[in-house]
Design a protein around this nucleic acid. Structure first.
Lengths: 200, 200
DNA sequence: AGCTGATTGTACTGATCGGTACAGTGTGCC
DNA sequence: GGCACACTGTACCGATCAGTACAATCAGCT
């Protein structure tokens, strides 16, 4: 059931190349639209490598989900050190900058997956877990604010974090199909205002 | 380029059955995960019917997108007659009731598609158009309120409507992967409060 | 009845799908 | 050197994919 780890640096490089290629292709074409053959052609690996490291395509997708979470959090490092209201603003700016610089589509890789694997019993929990990890950093930041006396002690950090996440996802979804970041900008602005309403 | 219309009631019934089956299957398995053969098996139609009415699978998807919009708006009839703040609340209640009654997954069929076809040059504009139609009803309701003097004349109905739509989509996406309507309930509550902030 | 066009059933094609078999090569360790 | 094992290349499998060919049937109209 577990994904096979590589035991040498060479193997690790090959494995990474496969996951990277799969992540990039699935970001654009979706899971079902990305065949194993295409992934291998793009990564330069052969089929025996793929099935040496992954039991099947589904396990490759599992690795891709993890990779997406790494990429997402890596693109918004401010999320790890949220300790003031200004930090939250910095965080939203980083979020916007990622897509302002973007050559690819404006979209959240996890959000793209959500619609497709939302009911797959194996993959859906992994997407869920990735979102919860993402959200937990926001929650931790809010708890920090509360402990510093900058957030209403009656506010529910978990709920506020979820509200912020819905704004991010809704904004990205609309921005995606409109090829226009405005929807995300507005959504983030509204979310920040909403959170600041619990400032104390 | 255009979808072939049926010229007899019998043909219309067959065509509808194909679109209905495709809509139901693609809602759960996505576009790429739903083969033409499965659609035909589920609808009881043969392959010659499918290709009599649709040039190819992509045109079938186009018809499915239209069907989704009809289903969505049909499930929230209050959206057609928004003329008071109470009407907006009724609308959000209808939105929630759809998924409370749901046997199927908690999800927006258009949202599921958005991730998958978001960059398909033929299909993405159709998804975009469907969202704009949906959103336009909200905008019209806000204009009605403004004309009745119940909304700040400086408020931008189009922008507020887009903000509401991002809440709906973000809430549905999170509710989908968590199998828990709470995210949508909260998102709609926050959106309503935000809109009411422009009450005059 | 007989004509006409819409509609239908079924068999088929070549391409591609996910996955397997198996023989080979690279590489660290003794 | 030579053993062990991670790693790799390629050919192949049956199933399924989207799409086509073509003959048969149905139904309205005269």
């Amino acid at each position: 059931m577990e994904t096979q780890a590589a035991s040498t640096p060479r193997g690790q490089r090959t494995r990474d190349a496969i996951v990277d290629a799969a992540a990039a292709l699935m970001y654009v074409d979706g899971v079902a639209g990305t065949s194993v053959d295409k992934v291998l052609a793009a990564s330069g690996a052969g089929k025996s490598q793929m099935y040496h490291y992954f039991k099947n395509k589904e396990q490759l997708v599992e690795a891709v989900i993890d990779r997406y979470l790494e990429q997402i959090l890596g693109n918004q490092p401010a999320i790890f050190t949220l300790a003031s209201w200004a930090d939250f603003e910095t965080w939203t700016e980083q979020l916007l900058d990622v897509h302002r610089r973007a050559g690819g589509p404006i979209a959240c890789p996890l959000g793209n997956l959500a619609g497709e694997v939302g009911d797959n019993p194996k993959l859906a929990p992994l997407v869920d877990r990735a979102y919860r990890t993402w959200e937990s950093h926001l929650e931790r930041g809010l708890v920090t604010l509360r402990d510093k006396g900058e957030l209403d002690p009656d506010a529910d950090p978990a709920r506020l974090a979820q509200a912020a996440m819905t704004s991010v996802q809704g904004g990205l979804l609309l921005a995606h199909i409109r090829h226009d970041l405005t929807a995300l900008e507005d959504a983030l602005g509204i979310a920040l205002t909403y959170l600041r309403g619990f400032k104390r």
